[in-house]
Design a protein around this nucleic acid. Sequence first.
DNA 1: CGCGGGTGAGACCGATCGGTCTCCCTCGGG
DNA 2: CCCGAGGGAGACCGATCGGTCTCACCCGCG
Lengths: 198, 198
Amino acid sequence: MARTDALTPGPEATAGDARTRILAGAYDLFSRNGIRAVGIDAIIARSGVARMTLYRHFASKEELVLAYLELREERWTRGWLQEEVEARAEDPAERLLAVFDVFDPWFRRDDFEGCAFIRVMLESIDGEDAVRAASTASLTRIRGFLEALARDAGVADPDDFARKWHILMKGSIVAAGEGDADAARRAQELGRLLLAQG
Amino acid sequence: MARTDALTPGPEATAGDARTRILAGAYDLFSRNGIRAVGIDAIIARSGVARMTLYRHFASKEELVLAYLELREERWTRGWLQEEVEARAEDPAERLLAVFDVFDPWFRRDDFEGCAFIRVMLESIDGEDAVRAASTASLTRIRGFLEALARDAGVADPDDFARKWHILMKGSIVAAGEGDADAARRAQELGRLLLAQG
DNA sequence: CGCGGGTGAGACCGATCGGTCTCCCTCGGG
DNA sequence: CCCGAGGGAGACCGATCGGTCTCACCCGCG
């Protein structure tokens, strides 16, 4: 039904100190395969680290997952999405539209992995779950970024606008996961309508 | 990180023949908790059936999941979404907008479970996976329904239109899963812009 | 009455899960 | 030079996974 495999050490097995290597291996495996599908054995094999070394740095798989989500936010949200968006435009409205210009080549990658926060959120059922709380918090911070841009663009209701923009982003990411390579263009066209309307 | 539990028999444990009871129990558990999180033990406990009885009707968990997806399409897609939409309006454009009127109370349910097809698709990694193929096929058929309405509404590019409408639907479902109870209204407003534009 | 199919209960299987523990080796600093 | 911390290897733990097998039972049909 779904195999993980990949018990071979990856390129990140030679990175730096143990903690960095573990997190690097977990980052790739979790990003590609989700949380439940990736076992501790796969992570230690991938990062070339002993079992006990992992548990010396992370108390449990859950803590490792939380560290992964933090890293994902640092790398994907801030280091990639926000940085690329801000590099591509100055005007806030153009920055909002630039989100989908950044998405477009991402959607076309053959190793497209989708949004980790959405995936983790859907994987964790329990509403009290710390992992679910962390992933929804990451999504909320993405919305905060959008809301600031919307405010700068002078839209009437920045919160509603940001939530709508985020619907376009999430919908297009899922569509891209389904195989629609043009999902970014479609979402951008919808975004243009929203911007034009006020 | 995420517990399933619910080892007590559910109301569907007294339904009818064994196969029906198994499928009914699996339907509830899979819909609420996803596929990976639900074990065979939980399903047999829920449906009040012996282990071997399950394996006499379904060769493997994968086959049970495929049967679940079929049932989900019958109940959710056709028996609920499409039926409700067609009951609420005659005009194709109004039917498209009615999708979000149908979504709205669904999003507000406290046992809101989200879209099973999206969840199963994201849970299964392997591109060759039969389960993933079945879930994306179900999503494609939803798009087919939208495309027919778009064609009847006389839009210029029904395929592009349906894919955009589906982006709004999927995005709003994920947003609702995050906790945005007003996601249906937001998506509907975006839909209105798309309809107005052509 | 007797027979046979469908079922329930539950032991059992090997594999894997997350997590613990021990032993040994290596390497750097006093 | 020695010592101790950090890390590698891998045995081990109980629990759970999907799946198999046996056996007794019940019920309807001939």
